[in-house]
């Protein structure tokens, strides 16, 4: 299952009057069915806000967002979300967490015994896909951060959502675990055929995962540049060292520095360094 997402001139303002924060302005973007899109940008650029708006957790101040042409109103079972952390239910085991949605009316209408069986099979398949078989009966607190995120992803996939939204899901993981998770999530994208929107502040992660990268800029939050990733659909870790990959990484990092206001910080730093050099020249004279 898959779906398209159409962001039509979306605005988000927090607060009123002179203190209002313009978290997002004029956001326009069409995401194709089964596309893997990553959002990157400096903090305050509105990337998480935009993702939460697609999810329906955050309302729009202006504009609209449509899924398969239908404007959304609030969260829905067609859009699953993986949060950065603290979203698992600590009182449920791994299997119970993954099957949580089966307790909700939204997923149990018109339920037949065949559906129940199919759901059980689905849960088992996800546990195997995510490599959780040996911890299926453990509680989340007994798992490492990486394993917990695998559970969160499996839980989000349980209801076969056409759209998977991910809000810096690997931000708290160490580098090695991340690499494993990257290949896992790309595998999920191929197997499930879902449309994935992935927010990250890590440019390398954005390029390695995404077919398209949406670079966002702060003050006011906005979509700045779109990049097509010039890598084949099949990816492997060695590609991170290819000239195309590195060139794109350099280009994006440069643009993030330009838009984030860090450029002035860097110029300031360069000036300070120059001054130190001048002082040194004077004293050694």
């Amino acid at each position: 299952m898959t779906a398209s997402i159409d962001i039509r001139d979306a605005f988000k303002t927090f607060g009123h009057g002179p203190q209002a924060i313009h978290a997002l302005e004029h956001a326009k973007l069409a995401i194709r069915p089964n596309e893997f899109v990553t959002f990157v940008g400096a903090s305050g650029c509105g990337k998480s806000t935009l993702l939460r708006m697609i999810c329906g957790l955050e309302s729009l101040s202006r504009g609209s967002i449509a899924v398969n042409g239908q404007p959304i109103a609030g969260p829905g079972v067609d859009r699953a979300m993986v949060f950065q952390h603290y979203s698992l239910y600590p009182w449920l085991t791994v299997t119970q967490n993954i099957k949580f949605c089966r307790q909700l009316k939204a997923h149990t209408r018109d339920r037949t015994s065949a559906d129940v069986e199919k759901a059980a099979g689905r849960a088992d398949a996800l546990i195997r896909l995510m490599g959780l078989s040996h911890v299926a009966d453990a509680y989340p607190s007994q798992l490492s951060g990486g394993m917990q995120q695998r559970v969160a992803i499996a839980r989000a996939l349980m209801s076969r959502p056409p759209i998977l939204l991910m809000d810096e899901p690997f931000g708290a993981l160490d580098a090695q675990t991340r690499e494993v998770m990257h290949d896992l999530i790309r595998h999920v994208h191929r197997m499930e055929g879902s449309t994935i929107v992935f927010v990250t502040h890590d440019v390398e992660e954005a390029i390695y995962l995404g077919q398209r990268i949406v670079l966002m800029a702060p003050r006011p939050g906005r979509i700045d540049t779109l990049y097509d990733v010039p890598l084949p659909a099949e990816r492997h870790q060695d590609m991170k060292l290819t000239p195309e990959f590195l060139a794109l990484k350099r280009e994006i990092l440069e643009r993030i520095r330009e838009t984030s206001g860090m450029k002035t910080d860097l110029e300031q730093l360069a000036r300070l360094n120059a001054d130190v050099g001048a002082d040194a020249a004077l004293t050694t004279d």
């Binding site: 329906g56 957790l57 979203s87 239910y89 909700l104 939204a106």
Partner: peptide
């Protein structure tokens, strides 16, 4: 944690389901 509540919302939980199946057990 808000993330526990929002996770249930994204799975289509109703308000009473969130109270009963997330907030109270949590």
């Amino acid at each position: 944690p808000l993330a526990q509540i929002e996770a249930a919302q994204t799975m289509g939980a109703t308000r009473s389901e969130i109270l009963e199946k997330v907030i109270v057990p949590s």
